[in-house]
Design a protein around this nucleic acid. Structure first.
Length: 555
RNA sequence: GGGCUGGUAGCUCAGUUAGGUAGAGCGUCUGGCUUUUAACCAGACGGUCGGGGGUUCAACUCCCUCCCAGCCCGCCA
């Protein structure tokens, strides 16, 4: 099995160029994958799949299943292929432990305490589609979380066709696969046993749903291939550390009233959906993938799809974990940055583990801005430019040479004041908005201010200042108040922000106080803090009367 | 213990699939803008490319070995 096709690390260097073909090196990984798919001469439409169990809140990492496939789909479409991107909600899997966090239909994270946890607990062992939606809105637990995921895909502008695994079984789509596996059960065991030592001569790769208690069971006593049914006993099942009690019921189930174990189900999906490409996390790379590829070839008699392993994301340096509560959802991130920035994050090399550090989102946005500039030929960096020329069109909704980007931290400074006129004027004065910019382009640019403002507040960082609309409780030495009065007089004469900035220094010296003392007084008056943004330019944008009154400590 | 994938500047990352003098942004420091106050400009500092060995005229790149991190090699997905 040294066939290089079996290695899931599609983006790694091939060990040997057997056919002596010229190996083309692309700047964008999705092109490399697309090459591998085209090399298989796939039928149209080309099918790209992803999938997860709807076990709880879909976090950012789960989105690799959709976004990585999306970029490959777009590249193939550009090359003239018809592409169908599907996403299976693997919702016939049983609930095996209670999640600590859920998300309501708005996508907002809530604790388990906000729903009827006891009701959920009684459903351990049942398929997600057989469990009521804890929020009482969707048809099932599975449908609830699948719809959240679909909503996230919509937010990111990714057209993906959602498929319910439970429905595929119910519609009989898996019947031929189940028939094949159970009719040659000896072979199925032999193949899988090379990867799972627990597979013995008793092993039967089918799990009926108990007709009596509704739980997934594993003890099969008889197979009737002609009738396509199995007989079973509902026995106890060990799941991780705990045991899910069986009810002892003895019954018969059709192939549509149960499911294949994952190791067979995954290749089964490839067969029935005709999958040509599937990205998956590194946890599958050495387990499910080798056995799945083997089962596909030697049990089902199909060629497995082109694989691609992606590395996992971390959040703030820690593993993403639903159970530990270290998760971030797509809607949460989109409150802090634009969708194209998040799409950019997924366009980066999948082989590298990446940390999403919320405290340094400015860094991510800066990187995106630079990537964008590189596309427009404005950056002197050949490697970045080659990547951007290829990837950027797939990252943004539309290519706009007149787009305006305010640096993220500057946008955070603008967010200290609510007035949109102030924001626009200061941005103009600082040279971030061209004189001939359209209103629409300006509106889009200023939208970032709200994102950066949210970020400053959430992180409570060095940009989290608010202009104080009411006079803070202040008291100053007499020499400071004298300087403030002088400064107020200067402002009342009508000057630019730059001139006010200069006047702060002059006034401090004229009143024989430290410059820092006057700045501190200013920050205290306007922000109720001891530090803040560059003060003169800031005051220059505010309403003159307001500034004068505040400097005189009267309002 | 075995396997897979990573490890490049303080931070975020390019560059490794074809061996040819170590890169960017941010941060830091210094200077500039009449001016110590987060946004603007210029410059500088910053690296044993995880460690060691080997091949080579030449190694971040190829080979061997070791270290570190994550994952897999039980169940489940």
């Amino acid at each position: 099995m040294s066939d290089t096709n079996t290695s899931p690390h599609t983006l790694s260097a091939p060990e040997e160029d057997e056919d002596n073909q010229e190996i083309v090196h692309h700047a964008f990984w999705a092109d490399e994958v697309a090459d591998a798919i085209e090399a298989r001469n796939p039928d149209e439409p080309i099918v790209i799949k992803g999938g997860v169990s709807p076990s709880g809140v879909a976090h950012l990492g789960n989105f690799n299943e959709i976004m990585r496939g999306y970029f490959v789909a777009e590249v193939l479409r550009e090359r003239g292929h018809e592409v169908r991107q599907v996403f299976t909600s693997d919702d016939k899997d049983p609930l095996r432990k209670l999640p600590r966090k859920l998300a309501n239909s708005e996508g907002e994270i809530v604790g388990l305490g906000e729903v009827d946890a006891g009701a959920l607990g009684r459903n351990l062992g049942k398929p997600y589609t057989a469990i009521p939606d804890p929020f009482g809105e969707s048809d099932s637990y599975a449908a609830h979380f699948a719809s959240l995921l679909k909503a996230d895909a919509d937010r990111l502008g990714v057209p993906v066709e959602m498929l319910s695994n439970t429905e595929l079984y119910a519609d009989g789509v898996f019947d031929p696969v189940t028939h094949t596996v159970l009719s040659d059960i000896e072979n199925a065991r032999n193949v899988l046993s090379q990867y799972q030592s627990k597979v013995d001569e008793e092993y039967i790769p089918f799990n009926p749903v108990c007709e009596s208690c509704g739980k997934i069971t594993e003890t099969i006593t008889e197979i009737d291939l002609d009738a396509e049914t199995v007989s079973y006993v509902c026995t106890d099942m060990t799941v991780g550390d705990n045991t899910i009690d069986g009810c002892g019921y003895e019954g018969t189930a059709t192939f549509r009233e149960g499911k294949l174990p994952w190791r067979f189900e995954w290749p089964g999906q490839w067969q029935v959906l005709g999958v040509d490409f599937e990205p998956f996390g590194k946890d599958h790379a050495e387990g499910s993938w080798p056995s799945g590829a083997d089962i596909a070839r030697n049990v089902l008699g199909i060629e497995p799809p082109v694989p691609m392993v992606y590395e996992w994301f971390t959040l703030n340096g820690e593993a993403l974990s639903s159970s530990a509560g270290n998760i971030v959802t797509v809607p949460e991130i989109l409150e802090l940055l634009e969708p194209e920035v998040l799409r950019y994050f997924f366009a980066l090399n999948p082989k590298k583990a990446r940390d999403l550090d919320l405290s340094r989102l400015d860094q991510l946005v800066d990187n995106f801005d630079r990537f964008e500039q590189a596309y427009f030929g404005e950056v002197d960096d050949d490697d970045l430019t080659r990547f951007a020329e290829r990837a950027y069109p797939f990252v943004v909704a539309s290519i706009d040479p007149d787009r305006i980007r305010l640096p993220y931290t500057f946008a955070a400074v603008l967010g200290m004041v609510d007035d949109p006129t102030f924001r626009e004027q200061l941005a103009r004065d600082e040279g971030h908005i061209p004189a001939d910019a359209s209103d629409e382009a300006i509106d889009r640019a200023l939208a970032r201010v709200e994102k950066a403002r949210q970020w400053a507040e959430r992180m409570d960082n060095a940009y989290n200042y608010r202009l104080q609309t009411e006079l803070p409780d202040v008291s100053f030495e007499s020499d400071v108040t004298a300087a403030l009065d002088d400064l107020a007089a200067f402002v009342s004469e009508g000057h630019t922000g730059e001139e006010i900035q200069g006047a702060i220094y002059d006034t401090a010296r004229a009143n024989d106080i430290e410059v820092s003392a006057l700045f501190e007084a200013g920050y205290r008056l306007f922000f109720d803090e001891t530090q803040g943004p560059r003060l003169g330019e800031f005051l220059g944008e505010l309403e003159q009367a307001f500034v004068v009154d505040r400097l005189r400590r009267v309002a």
